[in-house]
Structures are given as C-alpha cells and as structure tokens.
Amino acid sequence: GGHPVTTQMVETVQNLAPNLHPEQIRYSLENTGSVEETVERYLRGDEFSFPP
C-alpha cells in the first residue's frame, strides 16, 4: 500500500463499519486508496488484516 490516508477517510469507514478496528481500516485504505472500495470489501465480508 502507498495511498495517503486521512483521519476523515478512516472516520467515514468507521461510521459504516463500526466493528472494524481503526488500524484495520487504515491498512485497507492504504491498499485500496478508496473509502468506497474499503466499504465494499467490508460488505462483501472480506477479511480485514492488521498492518504487519
């Protein structure tokens, strides 16, 4: 991942996926670069990993 992630982006995802840890959200956003894509992954039931 190398996309810039803002606190705003993390908070937006958190509102839609409250049971995800912020670190999981941030890591996913760094890989996708997209709030929409991260939320899609969540709704699909994809696994969210923590940063290594």
Rank of each mutant, 00 (worst) to 15 (best):
R44Y: 05
R41H: 11
Q8F: 12
E40T: 12
G33W: 06
R41G: 08
V35C: 04
R26I: 12
E37N: 07
T38A: 02
I25S: 00
P18Y: 06
N31E: 15
P4E: 13
P4W: 15
P4Y: 14
T7Y: 11
N15G: 12
E37R: 08
G33D: 03
P51R: 07
P22E: 10
G2I: 13
P52R: 05
V39W: 09
H21A: 11
T38D: 02
V5S: 03
P52A: 09
S49C: 10
F48M: 09
G45R: 01
Q14C: 08
E47Q: 13
V39P: 02
Y27I: 06
P18R: 03
T32M: 03
V13G: 00
A17R: 01
E30G: 06
I25D: 03
V5D: 03
V39A: 05
Q24N: 01
V13F: 00
E23N: 09
L43F: 11
I25T: 00
E36S: 12
T6E: 04
T6L: 07
L20H: 01
D46W: 10
G33K: 06
Q8C: 11
S34M: 02
N31H: 13
V35N: 01
V10S: 02
T12S: 13
Y27S: 03
E37G: 08
M9H: 04
S49I: 15
S34R: 02
P52C: 07
N15F: 13
G2R: 15
P51L: 05
E47S: 14
P18Q: 09
D46E: 15
H3Q: 10
P22Q: 09
V10H: 03
G45I: 00
E47W: 13
I25V: 06
S49L: 15
L20E: 02
P18T: 08
V10C: 07
R26G: 03
Q24L: 04
V5R: 00
S28E: 06
H21S: 14
Q8L: 14
Y27W: 15
R44P: 01
E30F: 09
L29N: 01
N31R: 10
E40D: 13
N19M: 12
S28Y: 05
R41T: 06
Y42S: 02
L29W: 01
Q24W: 03
R41Y: 08
L29C: 03
H3E: 09
T6G: 03
E37W: 05
P52F: 08
P51H: 06
T32E: 03
L43Y: 10
T6C: 07
G1Y: 13
A17H: 04
M9L: 05
R26K: 12
P51G: 07
T12W: 15
V35R: 00
A17M: 08
D46R: 02
L29G: 01
R26Y: 10
T6A: 06
R41F: 07
L29F: 01
Y42F: 10
S34N: 08
T7N: 13
T12V: 13
G2D: 11
V39D: 03
H3T: 11
E11K: 10
E47H: 14
Q24V: 04
P52M: 09
R41N: 09
T32N: 04
D46S: 06
E30Y: 11
P51A: 07
E11Y: 09
E47R: 09
T7Q: 15
E11W: 11
R41M: 12
P4Q: 14
G2K: 15
P52T: 10
G1V: 13
V13I: 07
T6M: 07
N19K: 11
S28C: 04
E30K: 07
P22Y: 12
M9T: 03
P4R: 14
V5K: 02
Q8T: 11
Q14S: 11
F48L: 07
V13T: 06
N15W: 13
P51K: 05
